[in-house]
Write a protein that binds this DNA or RNA. Structure first.
Length: 585
RNA sequence: GGACAGGUGGCCUAGCUUGGAUAUGGCGGCAGCCUCCUAAGCUGCAAGCCGAGGGUUCGAAUCCCUCCCUGUUCGCCA
């Protein structure tokens, strides 16, 4: 419960009593945050007009005259049919600041819920480096996980590694049969093709992808290679441990590169689960047997098994969800079912961060789970693909921006910015700050937009360090730190009579909303409200900073206390967004 | 063709679940502000048929219907 929630509740009670006084006990009404400047909460009286058979304006006038400003209510007024309320700012300031000082980084966080939440995100196929088309996934997933932890849940993040299927087999063949020289030559051609002059990055995922490209080409042109790969596929399907191990090993190497990239943007996953596990432990086969028993099950002429989902809201030409090949082997979707079954033994709530291309698959998965007797389902969080101004991202067409390149560019730009203004700073420190600032710019640029919205990647936006950006929030944090450094020792003072400037009240109001923002970002999975909130908080701080003298004020301790509280909350917002909170920049 | 998303000033974006007062903020543009705590900042100005059309309502960006545009999808791929 935030102080605004308490205030809202108090208004609800007072209005109920007033309605009783005018003989309209039990009439429904809403108390909402006001959009009008200088008003905190409002009760629109228009819906009451019919029931009371009076003009809205008369009702609000009448009610306003019956409610005296008491308790948290400092002012009641009636404007054009709206019954308006103002909160007692003294109470607001005192209780908010005391709470921040008491809780520190836990301010805004909810108590332990005991709910285990599993967030599966990223899960990109280990066949190449992460490009920005997919970069939304780890950033959304990681931010959501951080929000959910603040909502009091036990959160585990998880990456589902696809080490099964043709793609990884081809990659594996490439790793074992393509020479380094061939790969280097391909790499050179590839870079030329995508219009870059530099050499391909010396990083395992980038090095492996060259072999993957060569393997794909050879497979297309050379029947012998094609046959070798088919043979590997067959042995894999037959459960040949040697082949399975080799493929897994390649995936591990590729994954090392991906993990490194993710680490650069502060994304660390708690667990990696391998798809091959569900073949090895027989759970995918068990799913097949169970689904075969269902009344929705059927077999094609060739012998492939499916369940018909037309009764489950699946629409289109084909409502059949196939779960075995005609030779009886399992499919990706079957193994995904086994995976979700496994996840449900480890968590109460499952969240899957998925690209919008997975929408149908996710729905089919839920229907199949229902057939298997489940009444709990994974909650998907879909995001639209990131495209480039020149169109859809495609590695083959050379229309691609790798996440590694984006990070490198952002950090380089941040370094230039720092060097411009801080000649006094040691090189190493500038590098460290550039890193944290560049990463913040990248992450913020992605989470600020609602996931389901189409997203066109533009360098100018991704490298924006002004206005609504990650570096803007960091700048305010650094500014507050600088002020506190200069201030030295001071005593916490939350006396509200010393914090009466409009900008001070505004700043406190923003701080007091943090809990509601976290709840919306986490439990309702609206993570994009968090960067917006961070910008509001930082902006409110900047206006306070611009208007009010702090270090030389008579009420220095109280003003510094507000600075410290704002800094504390901002630092937590930054952390929740997976961004560093630099003390200088 | 069906299904599912998105469409808001030149560009990006919030609000839509649960209808309310002058539609949120940023970028870019224009005009100001560093003898003072970090100018990656602050202040002000210009800029909108909320995709189009109907409907419901005292009141619609928000709810309902139709249509248009964009994206995704409709594999014995993963």
């Amino acid at each position: 419960m935030t102080i605004m929630d308490d205030f809202q509740e108090e208004i609800r009670q007072r209005v109920s009593v007033a309605l009783k006084d005018i003989g309209a006990e039990g009439t429904d009404f809403v108390v909402e945050a006001s959009t009008m400047e200088g008003v905190d909460m409002a009760v629109p009286c228009f819906p009451l007009a019919k029931a009371l058979r009076k003009a809205p304006k008369d009702i609000s006038d009448d009610l306003a005259s019956r409610i005296k400003p008491e308790g948290m209510i400092s002012k009641v007024s009636s404007v054009n049919g709206f019954l308006n309320f103002n909160i007692d700012t003294q109470v607001l300031v005192k209780s908010t600041l005391d709470e921040v000082i008491r809780c520190q980084t836990c301010y805004g966080s909810l108590p332990k819920s005991g709910i285990r939440v599993n967030v599966e995100h990223t899960s990109t196929n280990p066949t190449g480096p992460i490009h920005v088309g997919r970069a939304r996934n780890p950033i959304i997933g990681d931010t959501l996980a951080r929000c959910l932890r603040r909502c009091g849940h036990d959160v585990m993040t998880e990456y589902y590694v696809n080490d099964v299927g043709k793609q990884v087999v081809v990659l594996t063949w490439g790793v074992n049969n393509v020479t380094d020289e061939e790969a280097a030559k391909n790499s050179e051609e590839h870079m030329k093709e995508i219009g870059q002059n530099e050499k391909e990055r010396d990083k395992t995922d980038h090095k492996l992808v060259a072999k993957y490209r060569v393997a794909n080409k050879k497979m297309e042109s050379d029947p012998a290679v094609q046959a070798e790969i088919s043979d590997m596929m067959r042995r894999f399907e037959d459960g040949d441990q040697e082949v399975i191990d080799t493929v897994r090993h390649t995936a591990e190497i590729m994954l090392d590169g991906l993990r490194e990239t993710l680490g650069e943007i502060n994304v660390v996953l708690d667990r990696y689960t391998w798809e091959s596990q569900f073949i090895a432990d027989g759970s995918a086969k068990a799913i097949v047997e169970k689904l075969k028993q269902s009344k929705y099950a059927g077999q094609t002429d060739d012998g492939a098994w499916y369940v018909d989902l037309k009764d489950f809201g699946i629409q289109g030409k084909n409502t059949k969800f196939t779960f075995t090949r005609s030779d009886g082997t399992t499919l990706y979707t079957t193994r995904d079912l086994a995976y979700h079954q496994d996840k449900f033994t480890r968590a109460d709530r499952l969240i899957d961060v998925l690209g919008e291309d997975q929408k149908l698959g996710s729905k089919q998965l839920c229907s199949a789970l229902e057939i298997l007797g489940y009444d709990k389902f994974p909650e998907p969080l879909f995001y639209s693909f990131v495209s480039l101004p020149e169109g859809k991202m495609s590695t083959r067409k050379g229309v691609v921006v790798y996440l590694d390149d984006l990070i490198e560019e952002a950090v380089a730009r941040a370094y230039e910015e720092i060097r411009k203004r801080r000649q006094d700073m040691p090189e190493e420190k500038m590098r460290a700050i550039a890193k944290t600032v560049g990463v913040a710019a990248v992450r913020f640029n992605i989470v600020r937009v609602q996931p389901e919205k189409q997203f066109v990647f533009k360098w100018e936006d991704a490298l924006n360090f002004d206005g609504n950006s990650g570096p803007y929030l960091q700048y305010v944090h650094a500014r507050a730190c600088s002020m506190l450094r200069k201030a030295g020792e001071f005593k916490h003072d939350t006396d509200p009579s010393k914090l009466t400037h409009a900008n001070e009240i505004e700043l406190v109001k923003v701080i007091s909303r943090y809990e509601n923002v976290l709840r919306s970002a986490g439990d309702e999975m609206h993570i994009h409200v968090l960067p917006a909130y961070g910008h509001e908080l930082a902006s409110a701080f900047n206006r306070y900073y611009a208007e009010v003298q702090i270090l030389k004020s008579n009420d220095r301790d109280a003003k510094l206390t507000l600075v410290e509280c704002a800094k504390t909350v901002l630092a937590d917002v930054l952390d929740c967004l997976g961004m560093g909170a630099p003390e200088e920049m």
